[in-house]
Simulated scan of single mutants.
Amino acid sequence: MYRFSRYGLGASLLALWLLSCSLFAAPLSFEAAKTQAREQIYHDRNALGSLYCGCSWEWTGRSGGRPDLQACGYQIRAQPNRAQRIEWEHIVPASLFGQQRQCWQQGGRSNCKRTDPLFNRMEADLHNLTPTVGEVNADRSNYRFGVLPSAPMQHGRCDFKVDFKARVAEPRNAVKGQIARTYFYMHDHYDLQLAQQQQRLLMAWDKQFPVSEWEHLRNQRASTLMGHDNPFVTGTRYWTLHHRNQADGLKSVTVKPASKESAAHAGVRGNRRSQLYHLPRGCPGYGQIGENNRVEFGSEAEAMAKGFRKAGNCR
């Protein structure tokens, strides 16, 4: 009796430990990253404002939100639907790091998501994600950052300027330092190329706008999930012109073809309506889930942690 109880307790503790690991682990997909960012980084920040405009929002759905445009003096420029929702923006655009990958040249973002583990890791990096008003996310596009002293603000009181012809955007002063240190991190961690002109500008912003209390807290929360911090926030690493990237993010990425075992557990797909998940192999319903009900997971553990269970017809 004692032995049964002892091992039963041990098994229970092990199960709890495995569950906690799945809850506090680096996301393997952009969809998973958005959910984690909402639940464990920005869960208590929606009243304190979005990155570019400082607009508060109400959470909706699994990872989205509805901004209070009136309260922050936001005026819709051209896209009312996107202006009415909070979106997750990559501070360093996905196209910027994607275009430096071979997969992008052979089929764009969708091909990278299917074939390149490193692209998926970069796309899901929580240090690079931030909630923004959707229209501003669209207007920023993948433009480089710059200084636009004569450009007018086109979104009401939102202190965000964009020159569509020159493909340049200027954010408000309060977030310029955070943006600079995110750029340094992404380029250093994933060994990306950064133009000298952009380096000089971001170095100036980094010096002029030091790390805020929120940026420190944001870094701590993201670090808990990612397993590493942004050293340009903590001050353990500094960017200088002609910086030599440490490329820490490449050291744990294998370029070998995925094994049968890993392939069977990659790309787990859930059905939001039935709360069932399917594997890419052995589950007949994998390709039959409509886009509106589809939820992508990086592993079975992640799906189970979100309350999904394996479909009964999986072989």
Rank of each mutant, 00 (worst) to 15 (best):
G10D: 02
F119A: 06
S223I: 04
G285V: 08
Y42Q: 01
A311L: 11
R221Q: 04
T224E: 12
R237W: 02
Q196V: 14
R38V: 02
G312R: 15
T254I: 04
Y7E: 13
S274L: 13
H189C: 11
C158W: 01
D191R: 12
S223N: 06
H127P: 00
A11N: 00
I179Q: 03
L129W: 01
K207D: 05
A311W: 12
A32L: 06
M226G: 09
T254V: 02
Q199K: 09
R281A: 14
C112D: 00
T240W: 11
G146C: 05
Q196M: 12
F160C: 04
R237Y: 04
L225S: 01
V233P: 00
G312M: 11
K306V: 01
Y185W: 12
R269S: 11
G177D: 01
N81G: 13
Q106I: 05
L217T: 09
C314P: 02
Q208L: 13
L118H: 01
V233G: 03
H228G: 04
Q288Y: 13
L225H: 01
G107D: 10
M226C: 03
Q246I: 05
N128Y: 04
M226Q: 05
S56A: 15
S63C: 07
D125P: 00
E170Q: 05
Y190L: 03
R62G: 09
L23F: 02
I76G: 11
G235M: 06
P27T: 13
L19Q: 00
M203L: 07
S5D: 13
A305I: 03
W239S: 05
C283G: 09
G287R: 15
N120W: 08
N81P: 00
H228N: 11
F232G: 03
M226V: 05
M304R: 14
Y238G: 09
A266D: 04
R244I: 10
Y74R: 12
V147N: 07
E213Q: 15
G312I: 13
F308P: 05
S56C: 05
S141R: 09
D139R: 13
L201S: 08
T130H: 09
R85C: 07
L276I: 09
L18S: 07
A258E: 06
Q36L: 14
S110E: 15
L23E: 01
H43W: 06
H228L: 11
T236G: 14
N81V: 13
N142A: 15
K113S: 11
Q84F: 08
G156Q: 10
K165W: 06
P117Y: 14
L51Q: 02
L241F: 08
N142F: 09
N271W: 04
P152F: 09
G312E: 15
V295Y: 09
A151E: 11
N46Q: 11
G282T: 12
S150V: 02
E123K: 01
D139M: 12
S150Y: 05
R294L: 15
L48S: 15
V92K: 10
T35C: 04
R294Y: 10
Q84E: 08
E58A: 15
A222E: 07
S274E: 06
S299W: 04
